[in-house]
Structure formats: C-alpha cells, structure tokens
Amino acid sequence: MLSANKTIDEVLFDLPRREQTIVRRLRNLVLECLPFATEKMMYGVPFYTQNRMICFIWPPSISWGKKKYSLETRGVTLGFCQGNKMANPDGILLAENRKQVHCIYFKSLKEINDDQLRAFLYEADMIDGTFRKMKKK
C-alpha cells in the first residue's frame, strides 16, 4: 500500500523492478530538461510544476482512481498537463478522450527515445512559460 506521505525516492524504491527502471529514466530526462521545475508528490506520483503543472510520471502499479493497470497492459505514463497545446505531428501524444492532458506510455526502456522526449519536455516548458505572471510596475 502506498502512503501519501512517502517521498518520491521511497515510492520509486517500492515499485516493481521493471517499472522502477523506466520511471528512473523518465525522471532523469524530466529533471534534465526542466531544471527550474519543482518536483513534488501529487496523487501519489511525481508531478513537475513551475507556473502550472507541466508533466507527471505515473507507474501502472499506482492505481489511477478506481482503475488498476500493469506494465503489460498500460505501461508507465508520462503525461503532459498542457498536452493539448503541444505539437504532435506523429500522434505520439495520446489524448484518449481527454481535452487537456496527453500521454505517452512505456512498457520497456527500449521504447524511450531520449531525443524525442527532450523535444516534448522543452516544448512543455516553453508552454508553461506562457503562464508566467506579469510583474506589476
């Protein structure tokens, strides 16, 4: 059972080994590409925020509401909170009947294309920058 009070490292440690390796790789890419984002636990998983929520990493062993998934059925989710605003010419980001959040799923490390994900993360960061509050004079 996952506790809401666990740190990100504690949650990662408790994940099944195959999920853990995928999550760690995604986390490293997110931290590399979003150096000014704050990493914090929300809904039991790591979210990355700056001006607004930018993205999240959701391992399948952590239930998504009432739905339960496995690495084989869903994979580790990398979700983009403003995914509807992102370029997606190859259809890699999946909306799945959602208006705003778009996701990519990974069932293995070999499915992770570092350069492609860096491009998505940099774009998500640029979109987040459009929400920066204007300073009053």
Rank of each mutant, 00 (worst) to 15 (best):
N84C: 03
C55Q: 05
E123G: 01
W64C: 05
D14F: 00
C81E: 00
E39R: 15
T130H: 10
F56E: 00
K85S: 09
Q50D: 06
M42D: 03
V30A: 10
L31Y: 02
D90M: 02
N88M: 12
F36D: 15
Q100W: 13
K110G: 00
K6Y: 13
R27I: 03
Y105F: 14
A4F: 07
I54C: 11
G83D: 03
V11L: 12
D125V: 01
I54F: 10
I22K: 08
W64M: 06
K66Q: 13
Q20I: 01
P59H: 07
D9C: 01
D125T: 08
M1S: 14
L121Q: 01
Q50F: 05
D9F: 01
G79P: 06
M134L: 12
N51I: 05
P60A: 05
L31C: 10
N28V: 00
R17L: 11
D125Y: 10
L121E: 00
G75D: 03
G91E: 11
G91Y: 10
T38I: 04
D128L: 06
R132T: 11
K135F: 00
V23K: 01
G91A: 06
K66T: 12
L78K: 02
I57N: 05
L2F: 14
E111Q: 13
K99A: 07
Y105K: 09
E39G: 08
F36P: 02
M86K: 11
L117M: 10
E19V: 03
F13A: 14
T49A: 09
W64R: 08
K40W: 10
V76K: 12
A95G: 15
E19L: 02
L71T: 14
Q50V: 00
E96M: 15
L109M: 12
T73C: 08
K67W: 07
Q100P: 01
G75M: 00
C55P: 02
N5L: 11
F131A: 11
F36A: 10
L94V: 15
K99R: 06
F47D: 04
C81S: 04
P59A: 07
P89I: 03
